[in-house]
């Protein structure tokens, strides 16, 4: 884990919202959005992060770019601790940038595209007007947009075009790492494919490292080298993409994979094949009751136990630790699938 060459390292990262005490000394409720998250991303690699709403993946992303301070744990970017940069937001901005989920709302409606793209060049790089002009032209070419877009306003763009501007803005200061927070989930499929291909081209052209966050398993699989599966603020499984989805070891990954609708697959009304009849009933019916645990009083054991067909008593009592399997595949489960 501790290789110095990693582009991005998170160690035991955690974020708790709320907490503290009221004026009368009463404890306020607190919610842990992210707990004990540890991973590293090699330069030029794409780490896919997949999880359902409320699993803490966006909180993680916001911590990695410095929009939220972590409650515990450290973040290292290219060998330097992110907390070393406190008071120098511009230095972080030159290393890591962020692409937002909603392309339209991430652009200020009152600014022209040119003003939007100029902002990072002025504030992060301190560029002169002549240099800015050349750089903006370069950026628009990189995201395949015509130069006439510069004088338009965000509401005049389609979702796909706005997301290209969002990507161009993130690339403006030539960062080394891009955090992509659901960059295509607001887009139509045909446009989604265009943007995914563009991201792949840019990664090769600029030698970028990606952290790609999505709820869509198929999208993550199409772009990632390695994949981390999040559930209730923790990584439950992480490993090479083909392993995680090919031979999932955590029951939650299996459930995710099984739930994802696919075109080239006959209708399925039964649960994953390695389940007994009783288990399949749990997947399709009775387990419907079980949803995410209450974040205000998290269970002591595995958060997935209530939905899991394989859960036993130890799952409900003890939090499973991360087990390292061959080929760098990690799983946090007491009874992993074979």
């Amino acid at each position: 884990m501790a290789d110095v060459t990693a582009a991005l390292i998170a160690r035991d990262l955690g974020k708790t919202f709320g907490g503290g005490r009221t004026l009368l000394g009463r404890r306020k409720p607190s919610v842990s959005a992210v707990r004990g998250v540890t991973f590293s991303v090699a330069p030029g690699e794409t780490l896919g992060i997949v999880g359902e709403s409320g699993c803490g993946k966006s909180t993680l992303a916001r911590m990695l770019v410095g929009l939220l301070p972590p409650t515990v744990g450290t973040i290292e970017i290219e060998g330097r601790d992110l907390s070393d940069y406190t008071g120098h937001p511009a230095a972080v901005g030159r290393l890591v940038q962020y692409v937002f989920q909603d392309p339209i709302s991430s652009l200020n409606p009152r600014k022209s595209i040119r003003q939007i793209l100029e902002a990072p060049l002025i504030h992060l790089l301190g560029m002169e007007p002549a240099g800015r002009k050349a750089r903006i032209a370069e950026l628009l070419d990189a995201v395949h947009l015509r130069h006439e877009f510069l004088d338009r306003y965000p509401h005049e763009l389609s979702g796909g075009q706005a997301q290209r501007i969002g990507i161009a803005r993130a690339l403006a200061a030539a960062p080394r790492i891009l955090i992509l927070d659901e960059p295509v989930s607001a887009l139509d499929v045909s446009v989604q494919a265009q943007v995914l291909n563009l991201l792949a081209d840019l990664r090769r052209a600029y030698d970028l490292t990606y952290l790609f966050i999505s709820h869509d398993l198929a999208v993550v699989e199409a772009v990632s080298d390695r994949i981390a599966v999040f559930y209730f603020g923790r990584i439950v499984e992480m490993g090479p993409a083909e392993e995680v989805f090919g031979v999932p070891r955590h029951p939650y990954t299996k459930l995710l994979e099984w739930s994802t609708p696919a075109i080239r697959r006959p209708r399925r009304r039964t649960a994953p094949e390695n389940c007994t009849d009783h288990e399949s009933a749990k997947f399709s019916g009775e387990a419907a009751a079980a949803e995410l645990p209450d974040p205000l009083c998290p269970p002591p054991g595995c958060a997935f136990a209530a939905r899991c067909a394989r859960a036993e008593d130890d799952c409900r009592a003890v939090m499973p630790t991360v087990t390292l399997l061959p080929s760098n595949h990690e799983v946090a489960c007491h009874h992993p699938l074979d």
């Binding site: 499929v189 494919a193 995914l196 869509d216 198929a218 999208v219 080239r264």
Partner: peptide, 14 residues
């Protein structure tokens, strides 16, 4: 255009 699960990493035909 639709990424299909189980097909690994690839370029999509946009």
């Amino acid at each position: 255009c639709v990424p299909e699960p189980g097909r690994g990493r690839r370029t999509l035909d946009a």
